[in-house]
């Protein structure tokens, strides 16, 4: 998977951003932002660092990102042809699709019967993880920097030593009757 796209990393980035933005959508970064569709308030997967995560060697797909972008744009063009949509040629085909059409493409690519499903599910999983876990950063730093995904989840901060502890964790009262067949070990007979 070492294929070099003619446009290189910079050329593939808007397409990959548009994919990540379909998974966890966010607000546009500025008036000229084409990759982020602006389909949801607040930062989404792109602002959360999806591209940085995808480009980490640890994912195992960093070397395949050119191929991913090329394939996604090919699927977008085919989708547009089927739907009779005119695409703005100044941006990559997937970026040119409106958000609902991007969503339709991603749904089709990740559906159980799609032959390339595994590949697209993988890209979706990492896009999601950029938002839900900030897996490209130390979590303590992500929390400290106000990572948008962890903020959205309301992820509580650690103690000063970077470890989490929750001294208050229990309602501390009996909240149900235990099963009548519970034995002395706490299991059922």
């Amino acid at each position: 998977m070492e294929t070099e796209s003619p446009t290189g990393a910079a050329g593939r980035t808007p397409t990959l951003e548009a994919f990540a933005d379909t998974i966890v959508p966010g607000e546009k970064r500025g008036p000229d932002d084409r990759a982020v569709a602006g389909a949801a308030p607040g930062p989404g997967a792109v602002a959360a660092g999806a591209i940085a995560l995808l480009e980490m060697p640890a994912t195992g797909i960093a070397d395949a990102l050119d191929d991913y972008a090329a394939a996604l744009d090919r699927h977008a063009r085919e989708h547009a042809d089927r739907r009779g949509l005119d695409l703005d040629g100044s941006v990559p085909p997937f970026v040119a699709l409106p958000f609902a059409e991007r969503t339709a493409v991603v749904r089709a690519l990740t559906a159980p019967d799609h032959p390339e499903k595994d590949l697209w599910v993988l890209l979706a999983l990492f896009s999601n993880m950029a938002f839900d876990t900030a897996a490209h950063m130390h979590t303590t730093e992500a929390v400290e920097q106000g990572h948008p995904g962890l903020v959205a989840l309301g992820f509580a901060p650690p103690d000063d030593d970077g470890l989490w502890r929750f001294p208050r964790f229990s309602y501390r009262r009996e909240l149900a009757s235990v099963h009548p067949d519970t034995d002395a070990t706490g299991s059922l007979t």
Partner: peptide, 30 residues
Amino acid sequence: TRQDWNDVTYSGGLFAAACAHAGRTANPAP
């Protein structure tokens, strides 16, 4: 060890309370 209700977390307590509300039993897990 067999745990008791003082070991049960908020999430466990919530599930237990919902079970009780629905007429079910619920056990602290060993």
